[in-house]
């Protein structure tokens, strides 16, 4: 993940000395790391270690106390940069239909009508919601809602996609299905993804890299490269070994 001199891959995100305090409470303590373009980075850590704070600081939902976050070598700015965020809870707009939700980001970015229709159709098809395009969120199940969020995020063709435990509230079958869907979209689009999760198996299943955070005040404990071939088998000995390695790193007891 770290971009060293001589590496071929381009650095997409640079986080330098990121520190976040809430009053006197130090939550993120001088965090520095790089994310390569096209990477799928999973961030794991103990419960309550500040994973969401970490992502919200990255995206400037929270003002950071010190440090800098660069996207393509300039300070990150959600208004100018193509960033999408999939939240833990349902963030689809209840007053918009499925297709209006998917085109919401495209409207903001003033994408021409023709191109917008094309993108909405494409991503509704990919997430399997074409026949539900006129439905309102209240008429959909939890997994369908999360798929709307995924389609909305990918439709803007983001340079950086941030996901905050997006499958945390879904049952295991749906989670597996949506994890595969994410991998398919990521492989298809080459978007850089930062995926926060507390589920170690999910991190090993999805990530190209796995970043392990410590307890508060949070720092980066270690970043592991995950070269397991795809599609990954959660029962394969290499998978189990890596999962155990991450579990060992995360242990605070």
């Amino acid at each position: 993940m770290e971009a060293k001199a001589g590496n071929e891959r381009q650095v997409k995100v640079q986080v330098n000395h990121l520190t976040k305090k809430f009053g006197d409470l130090l939550v993120l303590d001088d965090i520095s790391f790089d994310v390569e373009k096209g990477d799928l980075l999973c961030v794991v850590g103990p419960t309550g270690c500040g994973k969401t704070t970490f992502l919200n600081s990255l995206t400037k939902i929270y003002d950071i106390t010190s440090g800098e976050i660069l996207l393509d070598s300039h300070p990150v700015d959600p208004k100018k940069d193509h960033i999408a965020y999939i939240f833990q809870g349902n963030s689809t707009m209840p007053w918009l239909t499925v297709e209006q939700n998917v085109s919401f980001g495209l409207d903001i970015k003033h994408v021409p009508q023709e191109k917008k229709r094309e993108l909405v159709d494409k991503y509704l098809e990919i997430v399997g919601l074409t026949k539900y395009r006129k439905y309102y969120p209240k008429q959909l199940s939890a997994s369908m809602l999360q798929r709307v969020s995924i389609a909305r995020a990918f439709a803007t063709e983001p340079e950086l996609l941030l996901m905050d435990e997006p499958y945390g509230q879904l049952d295991i079958e749906l989670r597996f299905k949506l994890e595969d869907e994410l991998i398919r979209l990521w492989e298809m689009t080459g978007t850089t993804v930062i995926f926060i999760t507390h589920n170690i198996e999910e991190a090993v299943y999805l990530g190209e890299h796995i970043m392990v955070l410590t307890n508060k005040p949070t720092t980066v404990k270690q970043t592991l490269q995950n070269d397991l071939p795809r599609p990954r088998d959660i029962a394969a000995p290499e998978f189990v070994r890596l999962r155990e390695e991450v579990t060992e790193l995360i242990k605070w007891w």
Binding site: T59, I61, P78, K79, K80, H82, I83, A84, Y85, F87, G89, N90, S91, M93, F104, G105, I108, K109, S149, R152, T156, L162
Partner: peptide
């Protein structure tokens, strides 16, 4: 208003008036 709606819009590039 659910802050996640506003955060989602902000992350997609929406300004204050939008």
């Amino acid at each position: 208003v659910n802050p996640e709606y506003m955060n989602a819009a902000r992350m997609l590039g929406a300004g204050k008036s939008r």
